[in-house]
Write a protein that binds this DNA or RNA. Structure first.
Lengths: 196, 196
DNA sequence: TGTACATCAGTGAACGCGCGTTCACTGATGTAC
DNA sequence: TGTACATCAGTGAACGCGCGTTCACTGATGTAC
């Protein structure tokens, strides 16, 4: 029962991108095969190349999509100003986020693998992450968001690394304490003002 | 020309562990095949299982070894007290470290992949990272290193995430600014004292 | 309205290749007498 | 000292399997007359 039309195909493509984003975050990029990715979307492997040029093409597209979704759902939805920032930080460094790999932050799930990706993928990542952190920078310094760009980026690095570390530890008590300490560190960074 | 004896075999094993550590950091765990790992050590694939039970066994051993080496070379070699900490931070968040994946920090290179590893590997990672951060904690609070453990761990998370992010960005100017901002953040964390 | 044809999203088998792992074998080294 | 045998680190071919990718085909949908 294959439906027909440009619209339907675009829908299918969207579904593949979304399920692939989840799968990549859960099993890693190298850990996710094309057959599995297509099965996730309810399709067989053969249809893949009607939608994407290569696996790398999907990787690039899925990463860009993940960052866009994160910018729209997490960052854009938060309250304005410092209250929103604190909300973002506390949500990010929470046990719930720690335990939901597939639905979580693509940076925390994939950052070191992205560093080993093709230039095309890294370029798409760079573009996507800039959009994401601009939403953060706008809350840090509403009058001059550009000046806060690097600081916002460093906040993302801090949070992603802390979450990764918390996920890698087998000592759950320590992992929990690390998240709390990470919140303190992130809030201290926010309150340091522009003079840092 | 195969040499004989327990001593020689232990040497060979050591060589495999060291070259594998490098390779894992460069190409990722999933990205490094057993044949390649053995070729790196100057051997053929067949000899692998005389040294390790499985690939996972080597992964576990290599990660533990990498953390031990880092504790001994980077942390233990630094000057005592706050001066040594600053030295560690500046070395870690330097362009040189950023550009030397194979010789660099295993946390920055592999942290998200380690989070997806078997419990055995994550346990070995946890043990190894605790030794590493104890060296940092001892410099943070010589009189009560245990109290500084979590803070030291959070410093590692901050630095590893920042380095990963700096590696993933295609904008080298921005990547450089991020490293500098990361140094500021790390030093601010050090100077925050025990009251954080 | 009905029929013939074009379009095209998706199927599923197959391609060559590298994966992790096994195993029969080689040949240098060490031991016994 | 010389010879026969045991030990064992390492070789290299092979195993079944899943990888990314290709392609002939199916069958539902849309279009033309």
């Amino acid at each position: 029962m294959v439906r027909y039309g440009k619209e339907h195909k675009a829908e299918t493509r969207r579904r593949i991108i979304e399920t692939a984003g989840r799968r990549f975050k859960q099993d890693g990029i190298d850990g996710s095969g094309v057959s599995t990715l297509m099965k996730d979307a309810g399709l067989t492997n053969g249809a893949f190349y009607a939608h994407f040029e290569s696996k790398d093409d999907l990787v690039t597209t899925a990463i860009a999509d993940q960052l866009k979704a994160q910018a729209e759902s997490v960052v854009a939805q938060a309250a304005p100003g410092r209250a929103g920032l604190e909300q973002i930080v506390r949500g990010y460094l929470s046990p719930q986020h720690r335990d939901s790999l597939g639905d979580g932050c693509p940076n925390a799930a994939l950052l070191d693998e992205i560093g080993r990706c093709t230039d095309m993928t890294r370029q798409a990542y760079t573009d996507g992450v800039l959009v994401l952190i601009d939403g953060i920078a706008a809350r840090m310094a509403p009058e001059a968001p550009n000046s806060a760009r690097v600081k916002a980026l460093s906040l993302l690095g801090l949070m992603a690394g802390t979450l990764q570390l918390s996920r890698a530890l087998t000592d759950t008590q320590l992992a929990h304490e690390l998240l709390d300490q990470g919140i303190n560190n992130a809030l201290a960074l926010l309150d340091a003002g522009q003079h840092i």
